[in-house]
Design a protein around this nucleic acid. Sequence first.
DNA 1: TATGCGTGGCG
DNA 2: TCGCCAAGCAT
Length: 362
Amino acid sequence: MKTSHANSISDSQEIVQFNDSILEWYDKNARILPWRARQGVAAKPYHVWLSEIMLQQTTVTAVKPYFEKFIRRWPEIADLAKAESVDVMDMWAGLGYYSRARNLHKCAQQIVEKYDGDVPREEKALLGLAGVGPYTAGAIGSIAFNQPRLTIDGNIERVFARYHNVQTYMPEAKKELSALIKPYMCDEQMNPQPSDYVQALMDLGATVCQPKKVQCGLCPLSTKCAARIAGHALELPRKKPKSVPQREAICFIVSDDNNARILIERRPDKGLLAQMSGFPTTSLYAGEVHDWADAYTDILDSHRFVDHVFTHFKLKLYVAKVSAEYFNGTSLSASIDSNWVDYDQLDSLKLPTLFSKVRSIL
DNA sequence: TATGCGTGGCG
DNA sequence: TCGCCAAGCAT
């Protein structure tokens, strides 16, 4: 899509008006968030980086307590870099997408080694950091360093898709939206306050122009929002429906002879729940229990299970209490990295939510 | 380009 | 209840 010269002046006026409205709205409606400085005051780059990593595909509500915990325990990036990785993983337990935690730790070390402990300002340098992709690099540049970087998250995508009534399905629409957004966001004349600007757009998307709920009466863009005028703001951006498979597996609660200790597995370095602790399980990808339950009919209690939903499949995890002798007779025992934990310590063990659910029904 | 990767909240 | 969705990245 090319903008003709004849339209450029009115296009510019439209952009100025749009951006002014956004900033004016933000003056009155900015959310107060732990990682956000007062308006006009620059937030600490460490806080911006940490919060952006935590906020990847994760809600503000879920992130808040984790952010507070992290900065209390590791006040500076250098502190985080020096931490034990198991401590970082433990602090992250429950937040999900655990590769972010491993990359966060690695990134802290990269920042200390290559940039003397300071978050770099250059786009290229940011993109070289572990766990930092196009969005996060843009967000750090915009929010921490007040640079007019292209910063497009789900909120901004939605606000612009609706405002310009973009009918193209996601993710094909990303290029189109990117081209649409650039003149608003990446021009110093149009966007003199990049930090406030992108945060304003994200706040608007998060509180007014929401995925399943629109409050157009509160929106500063409503009179010119093409999707609202067309009467289908809620339907944008368009996405194709996707279904996820349902799987089943067995989780083993293995006790030693004295019933004093329980077997805990350290999960593999890669894959689902990588490097997290948990109870030993049969493969979480093997399909239905009925396919192979014959091998476990003697220990399987079909009434004790937990349901859990991952991004790409649903899991029904049956819980089986067995002896060490029994477990050692299964094919699982040889292939896992496990250790015995006292029952007393089970409550304090940091677990991903799937296994927290299991623990809660023991 | 498509897929794998958690979790909790909401309509 | 249940499907959708959140400040995406790595491969």
